[in-house]
Design a protein around this nucleic acid. Structure first.
Lengths: 215, 215
DNA sequence: CCAAAAGTGTTGGGAATACACCCATGC
DNA sequence: GCATGGGTGTATTCCCAACACTTTTGG
């Protein structure tokens, strides 16, 4: 589960008490119940930390099948990417904490590489979908959105271009609200919101496609 | 398993003899063995139709977990996308056949939607990777490559632009060979090959990225 | 010479980054 | 007025589809 906190992209981990990997940090998760779908199971195992409706986006990543990924024996794991907005500030149990994805502690199992895959997937989808809706608060200024994108992408982002690209694509839209400037002054900023709250592919892959193609 | 045959993108299916879904067409597959990885299992279950080295590309798609996707009981299925080049002309058992993905027969389980997901994944990756190497023969003319791309993408492709884009990206390169024209005449064509035979992302997602960014 | 197929030159449109400049507020 | 941050206009670059034109063969 990813969240942008304090201008950094962070992932929720819990510290294992027992062997194997005692003391190391692991992704939340657990076993699949009878007659349960994988996505529902992922939500259920996150429910201790956040309310299910606070999960703004959930998507399957991949299934890990290395027979020795768990030293206790064969365990298949299907990883999910969950995103929550900064509006959700869950109360966490004492053994769980948010860690910046670019400064992870020692992780358990293959969870470090899973987090890397998840981060890569998120970064790619920020480029060609509206997935930012699941990382940004419900209402925001372009500056705040720039900080959110910069945190998730891991490089500086131009507010000027971000605004133009996302409005042209119809991903974000202005509201009638205006944000008050900070006490240091500055022009009040238009408050924006995302136009949709579910995943939409805004930039379909269209290489080699004739411009007048049907369908 | 996909192959371009006769200028159409086709998928290998076998016709079920027994219930459930008797008479309907299913993807090749089977159960995971102890101490076996999912990818190795997928290869093993295709080995009856093709030699493993003929599988030019294999990648995991997604894991289906609907508790009632198999009427006999709970079965989790991890789908893989396998690609073979036209150089491979396997001898097929009598109950298996290649079917055009745009004209599928009645399928078993959720295999119809899995094939749709696989086709979408392939089409996307043709746009931003060199994945064509796994669909094209070892050596080919631009016209032949155009037909391959058109079959996989499902729309006409310009040979002119295809050649320029793929050479500029370094995906294909000319050889010293020249193909003889058909008896109807025409200029001989340069024979090309793919520069790599494993997946390379040639067009990384880079939206919002400054041009002088480090890393 | 003509048809057919391959390949190159060129144009135009669209999208994205960069940058200069203007706007609106607090103090 | 001046600093601060927000927003718009515009230039430049790059990629790619489209199309005209040239090249090289068979008959």
């Amino acid at each position: 589960m990813f969240q942008v906190r304090d201008k950094r992209l962070t992932v929720l981990l819990w510290q294992r008490a027992a062997v194997p990997f005692a003391g190391r940090w692991a992704l939340p998760g657990g076993f699949l119940a009878d007659r349960e779908r994988l996505g529902a199971s992922a939500s259920r195992h996150l429910a201790g930390q956040v309310d299910i409706p606070e999960i703004a986006h959930l998507e399957q990543l991949e299934t890990r099948s290395d027979p020795v990924r768990d030293p206790r024996g064969r365990v298949l794991a299907t990883a999910y990417l969950a995103l929550v907005t900064p509006d959700a500030r869950p109360k966490l149990p004492g053994d769980t904490a948010w860690h910046p994805v670019d400064d992870l502690p020692e992780t358990a199992f293959d969870h470090g590489s899973i987090i890397g895959s998840a981060r890569d997937r998120l970064r790619a989808k920020l480029s060609y979908t509206n997935i930012g809706f699941a990382l940004a608060p419900a209402a925001f200024t372009i500056s705040q959105l720039r900080d959110t994108y910069a945190a998730a992408l891991g490089h500086p982002v131009s507010a000027t271009n971000l605004q133009r690209i996302l409005t042209r694509r119809g991903v974000i839209e202005p509201t009638n609200d205006i944000s008050r400037p900070a006490s240091t002054g500055g022009r009040p900023a238009t408050v924006y919101r995302f136009a949709a709250s579910e995943l939409v592919v805004t930039n379909p892959f269209a290489a080699f496609r004739p411009k007048n193609a049907v369908g």
